[in-house]
Design a protein around this nucleic acid. Structure first.
Lengths: 166, 166
DNA sequence: GCTCACCTTTACGTGAACGTGAAGGTTGTG
DNA sequence: CACAACCTTCACGTTCACGTAAAGGTGAGC
């Protein structure tokens, strides 16, 4: 039985976290300031110490910010209650009670489901916007086709539009 | 021949534009300030006057900002060179020359194609993020299933997960 | 031609999301 | 234990995307 109570979770200091996430240390501290994440631990001399789950969370926050374009406030809503996560982390670490674990896990399940719902709503709006722009492209091509007809000029074969049989 | 040179394009003042786009007048002026759009015309007393194409453009900008989450700088890149659009508008209004119209239209075509490419790249990143979160959900459900097995308790039938045969 | 609602420019204010020192404490390696 | 490299907490500065007056001009109806 290899050291059950303290398996050496490999904690990182803020600079290493910054390097791996592509964020600045200032940004990481700022995210803590606005309640987006608390480091897993602090050293004796108050250094912030982050674990793997913090890393993932920061990557996720970065994606939500850069890829999805959410504001930090929206991200806060999406991740919903960092304090609860922190309590759950404690609980999970200190219990092997399956009932406790189940509580934590089902809670996580509904939260992740909500996240997916919000992201898919955003994806849907983006898709519909793309549809609009596609339609605009169609109209433009229609006008070009009109010109082609008016001039009795056959349309130039466009290499970027191989299947233009419509 | 019903008045070919001035068909009465129904120009709107900034307040009406604000009402129809859901933006504020300040925002519309600000977008002009940063070069996102110029009103189609000005009145004698320097009132801004917008046409239908301005309306569409503002709606598009709003979508890019709210739905896609782009910054105004990125939107500027996407819409690429308002000045060119302005020149084209002039040209298009003053010529019936099919060659000129073709130039304008093919130019618009490539620009809209670029816009679609950028939007689809963004949609792809969003989709991949959703995949990641789906995977996380899968892992969470896996852990719950483990607990179910360990307790020899049959899993509670989840109405939100009809096809959980994995 | 007066009036009122709408418009103009100019300019300072604001909240979000950090950047950038300053002043000092911590770690770990020689 | 010295010392460089990292960390800490303030705290002020900055850019973006507007909000919000202030001071005055415009336009349509009576």
């Amino acid at each position: 039985m290899p050291d059950t109570h303290n398996p050496g979770p490999r904690l990182l200091r803020i600079n290493e976290v910054a390097a791996e996430t592509g964020l600045t240390t200032r940004t990481i501290r700022y995210y803590e300031e606005v309640g987006l994440l608390e480091p897993a631990a602090r050293s004796e001399g108050d250094y912030r110490l982050y674990d793997e789950s913090d890393l993932e969370r920061l990557q996720f926050i970065r994606s939500l910010r850069d890829d999805a374009g959410f504001s930090l406030a929206q991200i806060g809503q999406l991740l919903e209650d960092e304090a609860a996560r922190q309590r759950n982390r404690e609980r999970l670490r200190q219990t092997t009670d399956p009932a406790e674990r189940r509580l934590y896990l089902t809670d996580a399940e509904v939260r992740v489901q909500r996240q997916i719902a919000l992201l898919e709503e955003k994806a849907a709006r983006l898709a519909s916007m793309i549809d609009d722009v596609q339609a605009r492209l169609g109209r433009i091509r229609g006008h070009i086709a009109e010109l082609d007809l008016a001039e009795r000029k056959p349309p130039v074969p466009d290499p970027a539009t191989p299947g233009s049989s419509a």
